[in-house]
Design a protein around this nucleic acid. Structure first.
Lengths: 259, 259
DNA sequence: GGCTATTGGTATTTTATTGGTATTATTCCG
DNA sequence: CGGAATAATACCAATAAAATACCAATAGCC
């Protein structure tokens, strides 16, 4: 509602008398977007709302809106509404919450989807045997997916677990952690390591960037309450499109860091 | 019961009239979770309960709940109920602990030293004026150093502060924060942004790596208790030699969900 | 162990709201 | 006068929101 009012106020104050109505309206909307009054993903008032409130015909409103749609500023969905086009910019992900990828993107009005790259049981690599504590006769479950926002690939996630805790990788729904819950294997602690790497050919191709550009690499090892390692995940994020944000607090002078 | 009432109260007070019902409900639940009114592991009222008490259809309730399930906020179990999902949270780390390069390296048994690249007062750049809230007549103190562990250059740190809080950059000893303490300017909060970049020629030469290799870039803005920005630091770490480690812990119910 | 109330899961339909389009009148300017 | 830009009217089509009715799994009680 507020967003709408911003536009209307702007339209009123616009002393561009003489110019065609649809041009005045177009400029008002454009400016509202550029000034951030309505952000990417936000919905505009319906064409009829704008028309009645601004007391002009809907076709005139439509002309203004369509110009902006053609210019890529707005996006329209039949039966749904008109929205400010999501810009990719840089995506910020809070470090404090892990599972919020989908939620985070949805809040920005981005269309999120995942593509499975791999889901299956394999003979473990030496690395996996070490970290997960497997013998060479046991199997490892590998789960890999490409995360995509607005048709732009953002990250590759590769998880490895003991086949004992995830006997059927194909059965995973949208959340790996949810699947672990159902088998009673809950990680209670994890250690994450963030580093930077130059993307290799394969990963670069998946993320649709030239090989060699910088990527954020995150390795995570999750532990059960018993201290046993349950999961080992290596994720690569596009460096040009992703930021990790962490908020820090300084402990007081008297307090110890951790008892 | 209490948890349910919290939600309903929130739903009533929500003056988001006009918005779709399921969105209002979704926001209410989301906020209840974020504010800790219902913690991880707690059960939500049944879909039918919510529906009848809020006087809306169950499908509408379901739509809201399912969105949150997809986002990983809630977990549903057929025949059992809907629960707040346990989530991984980063264990709180103190500012000094996270940023103290020397301490970090010493813990790994490395011999650490620094080389000053720059220490002086300058006219502020537009960026610095913006972030630090300076006028063009004020001066900015810039402090830059190359950090070296075991004779291997690991990072470049460039800090910018108002000249008011650091009138004599040359007088800094080994710790910038110690110098700030003595003038009574103590940051209590900081926001960090971690990203990846390909190192430019100058930085690559300082870090003794070929240009173009991946580097971890960390931007940090520190705040005083008053909320004023006191420091703006941009650091670049060699991606192949430095890791940023964070520990995560799963917050959830003490008891097991599934026996 | 098996029954049963309670829980989430699903399919189908109705309705209101949204953008989409064709047609027509008006104004402005060469 | 004529053509193009502008604006208004009336109607079409797609989507989302919401409700109804029914299915299936779980937990708890006997």
């Amino acid at each position: 509602m507020s967003a709408a009012d911003q536009i209307f106020a702007m339209l009123k104050e616009s002393s561009q008398s003489g110019a065609p109505l649809y041009l005045q309206l177009r400029r008002s909307i454009e400016e509202a977007v550029n000034r951030g009054l309505i952000g990417p993903g936000d919905a505009l008032p319906s064409e009829r709302d704008i028309a009645s409130k601004a007391d002009i015909s809907r076709v005139t409103v439509r002309k203004a809106v369509q110009d902006l749609v053609k210019g890529g500023i707005l996006v329209q969905r039949h039966g749904s509404g008109t929205f400010v086009a999501p810009r990719m910019e840089r995506v910020e992900q809070s470090l404090s919450r892990l599972t919020s990828f989908t939620e985070d993107m949805a809040r920005r009005g981005m269309n999120v989807r995942s593509v499975w790259l791999d889901r299956g049981l394999y003979a473990p690599s030496p690395d996996e045997m070490m970290v997960l504590g497997l013998s060479s006769t046991e199997l490892v479950a590998r789960v890999a997916r490409l995360r995509i926002a607005n048709d732009t690939p953002l990250a590759i996630e590769r998880a490895a677990l003991s086949a004992n805790v995830l006997p059927d990788p194909e059965a995973i729904g949208s959340s790996l952690y949810a699947a672990l819950e159902t088998t009673g294997n809950r990680p209670v602690r994890a250690v994450q390591r963030i580093s930077a790497t130059n993307l290799g050919d394969a990963d670069a191709r998946l993320l649709e960037v030239p090989p060699g550009v910088a990527g954020l690499q995150i390795e995570r090892i999750s532990y059960l309450a018993s201290g046993k390692v349950i999961e080992f995940t290596r994720s690569v994020y596009r460096g040009d499109a992703y930021d990790f944000v962490a908020e820090l607090r300084l402990t007081g002078p008297g307090e110890e860091l951790r008892p």
